[in-house]
Amino acid sequence: MLMKKHLTLESKAELEGLATRNGWTLRHAIQSGIDNPDSSIGIYAGDSDSYAMFSRVFDPVIREHSRYDMRGHPSDFSLEGLPTENLDPEGKFIVSTRIRVGRNLATYAFPPAISAGDRARLEAEIVGVLLGLTGELTGTYHPLGGMTEEERQEMVDGHFLFKQGDRFLESAGVNRDWPEGRGIYHSSDKRFLVWVGEEDSMRIISMQEGADIAEAFTRLKTALDAIGGKLDFASDEIRGFHTACPTNLGTAMRASVHIKLPLLSGQPGFERICDELGLSIRGLHGEHSEALDGIHDISNKYRLGITEREIYWGLYDGVRRLIALESALARALSWQ
């Protein structure tokens, strides 16, 4: 666990008496790691101030996890000069594409630390902006507490709606006041979604069936330009956009595909190949889940110290190579 590795007795003694303006303390920050010794990170931020006040712990965790030298985080959404054609027009390999970012607002605590009153005010402020979106982003907002169980489960099963946080988020305080102050906004075609009040105040998502990564990326940029013009996102020049979990700092972007790799994923070197391509592997239903019928969730491993453009290219090129390897194995099998 990185928190345990980098929280020295000296820094613990120095930081124990401190609290941010939202009352977030070192104990709050590390509680999830204390409760869950199998956690890989073990520390959460309750607000933007957390990263500065408890930097003696957060910064070394960030450096090691993200391989980041803390010298400044760049941003670039341009796709100029990069290939944008559909990687799998026949749909043989890629089931769907999803690109999301996490965002918190500078004037509020993050979900682990926010009060019930501020949670309601934050929801109202965000929803007011979302309901003003136009064009393909036009949609409706559904408060989580106002859904029937059937409606909620249908959205969860369709990968549109988040579930109550796992034990790691529970210990961090993310699940407090559930389900109040939480909900989902989605466009009529459900290619654009915003989760309100999950692990971060906003998870802004562009998703669609198939392999058109460029289309999903461009839609997300359009949405961020519109929303970011109305809301003040928490960020700084070193850590990029602030998120509750330090693993999401920087672009706070996770660009992913659900991809069928039944042959390649059965090879002993599959995880090594993905790691060398800068890609992470999850199961079909996200983190801590298993693959199903050879379908894996493949995404960028790093978010901090690289640009959105680099994340796009890393996923695009990495998926192209995985498809080539899977196709080669299929051809070899057919020759036998």
Rank of each mutant, 00 (worst) to 15 (best):
S201A: 15
S201G: 04
S201T: 01
I205R: 04
S206R: 00
S206F: 06
M207Y: 01
M207H: 00
Q208V: 06
Q208G: 11
E209F: 14
E209W: 09
A211Y: 04
D212R: 08
D212V: 10
I213S: 02
I213C: 07
A214I: 11
E215F: 14
A216R: 02
T218N: 12
K221P: 00
T222C: 10
A223F: 05
L224R: 06
A226L: 14
K230N: 13
L231R: 12
L231I: 07
L231N: 11
F233E: 08
A234I: 02
S235K: 15
D236E: 12
E237F: 06
G240E: 04
F241H: 11
F241A: 11
H242C: 11
H242Q: 12
T243D: 03
T243K: 01
A244C: 14
A244E: 02
A244R: 02
C245Q: 01
P246M: 09
T247G: 01
N248R: 05
L249D: 01
A252D: 08
A252T: 14
H258F: 11
K260L: 15
L261S: 05
L263C: 07
Q267R: 15
F270A: 05
F270M: 06
E271W: 04
E271T: 13
R272H: 13
I273F: 09
D275R: 15
E276T: 10
E276W: 12
L277Q: 01
G278P: 06
L279P: 01
L279M: 08
S280N: 13
S280G: 10
I281P: 04
I281R: 11
R282Y: 13
H285P: 00
H285E: 13
G286W: 09
E287N: 09
S289I: 04
S289Q: 07
E290G: 00
H296D: 09
H296Q: 10
I298N: 00
S299D: 09
Y302G: 03
G305R: 07
T307A: 01
R309P: 02
R309C: 11
G314K: 10
Y316W: 13
G318V: 02
L322F: 05
I323M: 14
I323Y: 02
A324L: 15
E326M: 13
S327N: 09
